[in-house]
Design a protein around this nucleic acid. Structure first.
Lengths: 147, 147
DNA sequence: TCTAATCCTTAGAAAGTTGAATTAATAGGG
DNA sequence: CCCTATTAATTCAACTTTCTAAGGATTAGA
């Protein structure tokens, strides 16, 4: 069972790798695209935080994505320091072309489960998440040189 | 539901990041440690394949891990070209200290589910895996410039 | 023994990230 | 209305990691 989860994660990793190659971007940039898809337009700093990047790294990532034509910068009219980053039309299409069918399939598969079964899965996932959260705290909290 | 899976993956990613920091290694090296833990001693090339690295990258990764004292090289006595890589005693202990409690908790949580429920979860995971495999093929197979 | 094949390592170049310094814009107090 | 502090994004240099290609050692076969 733990192995199943592990395999699922490996498979997801593979998908990401293939998707990145398909879009002609690296994994970092793909992560940015993913966040923008999930959360809509973000400012550069929001995107940096969402993707776990420093400011400098975010800037160059956005540069690359803009050069590729998947993303565009839009100056905020109210606060001209801010730069909004959003998917271009082509970016939206390309992302949909890759992840759309996967989402559709996932949706279809979910429909094959009964509500009771979905409830079990939901419980499983939330417990797994709880374990991870607990141990993330443990790993964060402990004395640095404890090992 | 899809979001739950996503969150679980993000959480796992966070755990990996914290674990790497705790062990004083980078993510690549952590992946090597993970493979060695799961599969026991491996030759350099086996480890490279398992971790998705080229030979050269594997060599430097092993160098780093050896310098950190988590891993050691052992020349094969029969075929002296081969180098076996295995966790040192300290490496084994450190890895256990980080992932052991997580595995224990996971095991304990699984016991709270009935066999029927575990069956549902298993089905869910295998279907999710099937979807990923199918789409990995799609992404691999299609014409390169199709986007 | 000579040759080809295998395994690992080394070396040089390319790519990405970080952290500090820089530029630009806003906000607030005197 | 200025002067200062703060915030946002970018630029730049140093560092790290990876890859490819070439090299060195070892083995197996002719």
């Amino acid at each position: 069972m733990t192995r199943d989860v592990q395999e699922l994660q490996d498979a997801t990793d593979l998908i990401d790798e293939l998707a990145a190659r398909r879009l002609g971007v690296n994994r970092t940039d793909l992560r940015c695209l993913s966040r923008l898809t999930a959360r809509g337009p973000l400012t550069a700093s929001e995107l940096a935080a969402a993707a776990g990047l420093t400011g400098g790294a975010a800037t160059t990532a956005i540069d690359r994505l803009e050069r590729t034509g998947l993303v565009e910068r839009v100056r905020d009219t109210a606060d001209r320091r801010r730069v909004h980053v959003r998917l271009t039309l082509r970016g939206t299409q390309d992302v949909r072309e890759i992840w759309g069918p996967i989402a559709d399939d996932a949706q279809a598969e979910l429909l094959r489960f009964s509500l009771a079964e979905l409830d079990v899965v939901e419980t499983f996932l939330s417990r797994a998440l709880a374990i991870q959260a607990r141990h993330a705290d443990r790993l964060r909290g402990g004395a640095e040189g404890a090992l």
